[in-house]
Design a protein around this nucleic acid. Structure first.
Lengths: 210, 210
DNA sequence: TTGCCCATGTAATTTGTTACATGATTTA
DNA sequence: TAAATCATGTAACAAATTACATGGGCAA
């Protein structure tokens, strides 16, 4: 029950290479080389990061960009829009930024995956639920997983920005398989539920209890 | 790109049935009927919730318990310890608490799962990594998944507190399968990596480029 | 003429973490 | 005698969300 203690010495200096994971994620998007606005980054993260690492909100992306700029990892410029649109602020990764992400990707310890599975949280409370509600929730989740799988498939090409017809990246492939597995897991649980119902049914008929 | 807007009317009243998911998780633990301390809850959540819904920190559990008590969903009493230990504060769910979780489990909309997969975040940055680092990270993740699978198996009996030899709950089964799938997904990616290396190798020998 | 898309950002709030304080008991 | 376990809690901070402000263009 040890409360984790960071093994960082507490010198008064702020570690400039320290960023929250979201910061690395945003810098990672930029590391593919394009000059992008906060808005672009949000859209792109919705069709890439989203499948394996949640997509940050607009305000967070804007915040991270500011932090990255201050750290010297990205540089920004304003571009005027053709039509009456508001000016756009676009960002590119700097050499220092590139070196920093590379270093992070190669050296930083990998945190274990975080899973917050709302569906299972409900089903875990099975003693408070009717079987029908369980089936309903599971059915919906099955559809969600299948939809995500399809999206991972179609958006997979986007992972390498631009490059049309590029082969799906390893992670894009992983995502497709992950959501396929999630769908199959839902099916398996649905089957478990049916089996359980049959057992109960038989027991009731026979007047037995296990 | 719609910024989500809660469909709750903004009457000045605070909705007493509103709780963060963590609050429901803690109340859920208590809904199994035992009288437990914050410390107990943390330990138990580490071997149940953890597998499908992250385990809150001590301080959070203590905070949530306070909130639940204020809402009337749990009641607390202090019990003296035999030996010199500090007094223990134990909690039981109230009837209102029971009604509230039940209602939540049955009616509340189910949020989609949240996944933050640090491992994939690294591998997604494959253009900055050597194949060896990728293998290393994946190998470690494979071991992590296998360990979690085993723990889900052994801790599964704990899901229904007490009841020795109780059959594994649906969710315990799901967790075991989930981590087995996670392990297999790592193996599949490792295989993809090998295949990719072979292709590159062949191309280099033949002097071709695809 | 309603509502969505583009576009950027601030403010307020909530959620969650780590560090720290305290202290007795048991185990290696 | 060092460490881990039991036990509860506060304070400071970090991370992330929602709400809000602003405003033009475009499609149904």
């Amino acid at each position: 029950m040890t409360q984790k203690r960071a093994d960082v010495e507490k010198t008064g200096e702020t570690d400039r290479s320290a960023l929250p994971a979201t910061g690395w994620a945003v810098l990672g998007l930029l590391s593919f080389g394009d000059e992008l606005s906060g808005y672009d980054l949000k859209k792109w993260s919705d069709r890439s990061l989203r499948f394996f690492y949640w997509s940050p909100s607009f305000s967070q992306i804007y915040g991270e960009l500011k932090r990255l700029e201050k750290a010297g990892y990205v540089s920004a410029r304003s571009v005027a829009q053709e039509t009456g649109h508001r000016d756009k602020r676009v960002y590119v990764i700097t050499d220092e930024g590139m070196a920093a992400v590379r270093h992070w990707a190669r050296e930083a310890p990998v945190e274990p995956p975080v899973l917050k599975h709302g569906v299972m949280l409900r089903l875990w409370l099975g003693h408070l639920l009717e079987a029908d509600r369980m089936r309903e929730v599971l059915g919906r989740h099955r559809e969600y997983a299948e939809t995500m799988r399809q999206r991972a498939e179609t958006d997979g090409a986007d992972t390498r920005a631009g490059e049309a017809g590029a082969p799906p990246s390893l992670v894009a492939k992983w995502s497709q398989r992950y959501y396929a597995a999630e769908r199959d897991l839902a099916d398996a649980m649905l089957a478990d539920l049916t089996e359980l119902a049959e057992l109960t049914d038989r027991d009731e008929r026979g007047g037995r209890r296990t």
